[in-house]
Every structure is written in C-alpha cells, then in structure tokens.
Write a protein that binds this DNA or RNA. Structure first.
Lengths: 330, 330
DNA sequence: CTGAAAGCGCTTACAG
DNA sequence: CTGAAAGCGCTTACAG
C-alpha cells in the first residue's frame, strides 16, 4: 500500500479511504489512487485490515454436512456471488449439537469472518445474539428466524403443491414420508412441510390416516426404511409424498424390491428437483438452491456494505410432473 | 494474549513460543502458560499471527465445482481432519481456465492461506512454483504431479478392475463411456482410466472396437448422450464401462428409454460407489473420497508443521458387484 | 531459557 | 479533503 501512496503522492490514510470508497476523498484523488493500485497489482492484506479495522474479507458458511446436494448447491451460489466481491468463503460443518455449541462459543471470540451464512439451520436467539455481539453479520439460507435476513422457499406451500398434485390425480390415501433432523431439533422444514401436507388434505376434505405419516432419518436410506414401514402397514397408501427427492428415491427402491410398480400401484413425489430426479423420472416440486445461495450472498453484501438488506422475498417452487405419479389404480 | 502473559508472569514472547510448541521454553513454563490460556479461553488471533509471522491458520481447497459428489466428499474429509488441528477451510471453485489463471496469479500475492489442497486438478509446474514462491504448501488430492505430495487412487487399476469383471463374465464387446474435462485439458483420470481399459482388453486378448470408445462431457447428461451415440452405432456393445457412476446412471436412462434391459441385454459398470449406486443397484468400483480427504489433510498438516510429508500410498479401490452386470446374452 | 523492542500492513480517531 | 500518529495482536531477531 505504501508503494501506491508514494506513487500517487498521498498518505496511507488517503489510499485506504480511496480504495474502500469511504467519503471524504476528492473524486480526483480517488481516481488516481485506483488507477495506480490497479497498475501495481495492489491487493490489500486481509490480515492487516482485519487486525487494524473491522473487515476480514471473509464470510463463513455453516451447514450440517457438505456432501448433501442442497448444502453444496447453496454454497456454490454463495461462492459465485461473493468471490467477485472480493470475499473469501470459509466452510464450517457442524455435525452434532456439541460441535454446534462449540462453534457459536468460539467463532465470535476472534472475529475470523465478517458474516456468517447458515444453511438449513434454525438459529436460536442466543446464537444470533452471540454472533451479533462479536460484530458478525448473520444471514440464513433455507431457514427462518427473527431479527436477521432469511432467504428461503415456502416449505408449507411446496408441500401443498406436491400433495395437491396427488389429490388432483384422485389420490386420497396419501402417505407423508417425513424425516427427523438428527442434529437440529428445530429444523423447520420438516414441520412446515408436514403442515402443508395436512393443510392440503384438509382443504380437500380428505382425512389423514395417521398410520400413513412416518418419519425416519434423512437421505435415501431413511426413505427406504420409511417405505418399508408403510408397506408393512394394514392398508397401503396409493401415493407417497416424500420430504425430499433423496427420500423419494429411497422409497422407490423399497417399492421396487417389494415388486410394487410405480406409478401403476403407488405414486411417488418428492421435493427438490435433485439432478437424479430427472434421471429417474421422478415427479417433484423443484427449488433452485444455487439461486438461493446467490440471493443470500447479495443480502450478505448489503449488510457488509452498510446498506439495508434487500428484500429477496420467498423463493419460488414449482411442480415438475414426470413419470412417478399417475391416477390411483381403480 | 497479554492477559495470559500477565497472569503467568512472563513476557508475550514466551507465551507465543510456549503455545506454538517452539523449542527453548522450559516444560514448567509451557505447562503454566497452557493451563492459564485454557482457563482464560484464549484463542490466538489469526489476523495478528498472519500479519506478524507466517501462519494464517487457513487452508484453501481448490476444486472445479462443489456440487459434485467427489469434490464435496473430499472436502468433508479435509474439514474433519483440519478443523481439530485449528485450521479453517477456505473453499475456492475454479470454473474456467481464465478463472484458474486468475487464482494462481493472485492467491500467492497475499498469503491468505498456509496451504492449498487441489482436488482433481492437475497442476502445471508453473502453478506449483508460483504457490511455492508465495510460501504456500501444496498438496494434490485425486490427481498426480511431480514435486509435491499427491493422494490418489490408481485410476488405471480401477479401470482394469471394472473391465476385468466384464471380461470374466464373458463380455468382449465392451464400450468405454469416457468424459472430456471441460475445464482442465490435463485431467489425468480420463487418460488413466482409458489406459486401464485398453490394458485389460489387451491382457485378455480382446481387440478394442474404436467405435465403442466415446467421450462426452461429464455427469449424467453426458452419460446419456454417450449411450445414445453407442446405441446409434452399427453393432451394439454387450457391456458398458462408464467413467463414473454418474455417467453410468445417465447411460442407464438412455438404455431404459430405448427399451433395452439391464443387465439382460447390456451390462453397465461405473466407478465411485456413489450413494446412488447402491440405490440403483449399480455395479461399480468403489473408492472412498472422504478417507482420501482425510489423508490429504494429514499430509498437509505434516507439511505445515515442518515434518516430512507422510507416505499415504495409493488409495485402494474395490469391485462392488450389484445388479447391472451379468453374462452377455447368448 | 526468557525478555524488550521493532515491525507486519493496514484503519481510525484526531488535527488541520 | 488530507495527513501524522497510534494501535490492532501477534512473531521474530537480538540480547542477555
């Protein structure tokens, strides 16, 4: 930085202010500083600015596990939007509750990042407060909360779109294959999607058979187990609404093994539009987590640059009808 | 840190040395410093140590795209091993060649990380040199190179395992459904797997029909297109060895649409043991990218702590026979 | 084995 | 609008 200052013939302070776009620098000086900085390939040291001032030039993304399609897609969206803005992305997986506590206890101690974006994690007010105290901006992607920007789909609506599709095909015995969050007792998506399921059923005047509402751990394995449970029940469902495409795919495996034809005997629908959904011809309710990540990044940038966080609204979901749903067998 | 120094009654320099395990501190003092630091919840500022000394406490993982199963699995392995060691993980996707050039040009300018772990990227000697000049340690996961530690499977062997399985079933018209790397002209895996395919065929004395060797972009879409090309050929293959499970799944979709039964009419095998392989009953050659990430992390830690990098050897792969391979139709 | 001092490259009041 | 100076929290020669 001193090279730049010397070359332009101004002080370090002026260079610093000019480059960061602070007020109180003449346009003339600012121009010159920018030009010289570019010519000299000057890159500010994040270490130094972090030490001296406030900004670290880093954003942490916090999620349950990375190999999930959802989490990695949102992360990619964040990365694509944050990097051009000169911010680096720190990835932190919080596996279990103890780890989660550790993270929120230590992270703000040393402000290693300017902002934290949590993916599909419902923050407690204490956790938010802790981050805030540490001077860290907070944004949620894929979950809801009070007092900080949240970018998410309407889970209840997505569930209704799925269940309405089944209802319109003529199904009444519609099972809900939900998941339980192993690591986060408060993950809201499950609750909201169940609410959407019940709301759609109620609106259609179709009673819910509680034997058809089952919950297993997430992923395809849980889906397979949940489907096995449904198959061992007294009366089979004619359609299954799964929490996600992965769960739906697990369910389809169980159906295949049980020799049950999809969709002739049982229809299956998921949520996500996972790349595999197209591959396996799975009917689903699509969402776009990469776009959601991008929007979360923009909100984060707003916060970091002192602007009011833009309102990105609720992210849309839409029914994608493929080959795993059909009218019920007569 | 000054709190710790004051409490113990030593200088800042001693605290710094004691905590970092440097030589020249009596065991007695070191103990005391450690104890007080723990009691006071002291966490060193990475900004300050980065500025003053050398270490930033950060490792960058560089990959093509994150939503890939392979990349995110390796990253998870890295994260699990690096975090307990007090290192944060910076994620950087390099999408296109221009971006790649930009990364290697700017990253070393400001040493933002202590080490770079590249995933499935074949580094050029110049890129390695550039990182080295910047004082950044280099480790490769899933690719090979000279002059820095590489943790990888034996791609040629993996291909041989797959093709040998098909040969042993009695197949001779074995197609290779390879991929072309859009972003990295030198990705070695494709070349090595093709070599393995040819070596296995040659060893069995089976001639390769060059019409059965096709390359498309990666992912399931490319697999579907490649399979379409094979299906439009004069003589069909009796078995398909796909570059990866994703490619294999794409191929299976094309086969399904064409009304061809797997494995009765055509056998299919992939590489990876992607979670979906189990779900779709796909025969494959399994690898463990999470373990590979962990091993890469350990090598990285060796380098950062001034030890010689341990030799983790070549990572094993093993044939997993499921339902998509069978003897050829008579 | 330990300490005093300089310095890493910035930012931020405080003056002007 | 601009600058001189202090300071962010460490590490590293240099002495002792």
């Amino acid at each position: 930085m001193s090279d730049v200052a010397e070359e332009v013939g101004v002080s370090l302070a002026t260079v610093s202010r000019a480059l960061r776009g602070l007020e109180g620098v003449s346009e003339d000086t600012r121009e010159k500083v920018r030009e010289v900085a570019a010519r000299l390939d000057y890159i500010p040291s994040p270490e130094a600015s972090g030490l001296a001032g406030r900004s670290t030039g880093r954003v942490a993304v916090v999620l349950h596990d990375l190999p999930s399609w959802y989490g990695s897609s949102v992360t990619v969206g964040l990365e694509r939007e944050l990097r051009p803005a000169g911010l680096d992305l720190l990835v932190r997986c919080v596996d279990d509750p103890a780890d989660r506590v550790r993270f929120f206890a230590t992270m703000p101690l040393r402000r290693k990042v300017d902002a934290v974006v949590v993916i599909a994690i419902a923050l407690t007010p204490q956790e938010v407060a802790k981050l805030r105290e540490g001077g860290v901006a907070v944004v949620a992607a894929g979950s809801h909360g009070e007092g900080f920007p949240c970018v998410a789909i309407d889970d209840e609506l997505a569930a209704q779109q799925a269940v309405n599709h089944l209802l319109q095909l003529g199904h009444e015995r519609i099972a809900l294959l939900n998941t339980v969050a192993a690591t986060d007792r408060a993950w809201q998506a499950q609750r909201d999607r169940e609410n959407g399921y019940r709301a759609a059923m109620a609106a259609a005047g179709v009673p819910v058979d509680e034997d058809l509402v089952v919950s297993w751990s997430g992923g395809s394995r849980g889906g397979a187990q949940g489907m096995d449970q449904l198959l061992s029940g007294r009366r089979l469902p004619s359609a299954v609404f799964a929490f996600s495409d992965e769960v739906a795919l697990g369910a389809m495996r169980s159906l295949r093994r049980a020799g049950i034809e999809v969709p002739r005997q049982i229809s299956v629908i998921g949520i996500d539009d996972h790349p595999l959904a197209e591959l396996t011809d799975l009917t689903t309710v699509a969402q776009d987590p990469v776009a959601l990540g991008r929007a979360s990044a923009q909100v984060t940038l707003d916060l970091l640059q002192g602007r009011p966080a833009r309102d990105v609204g609720t992210f849309p979901t839409r029914l994608v009808v493929r080959g795993t749903t059909a009218p019920p067998a007569p």
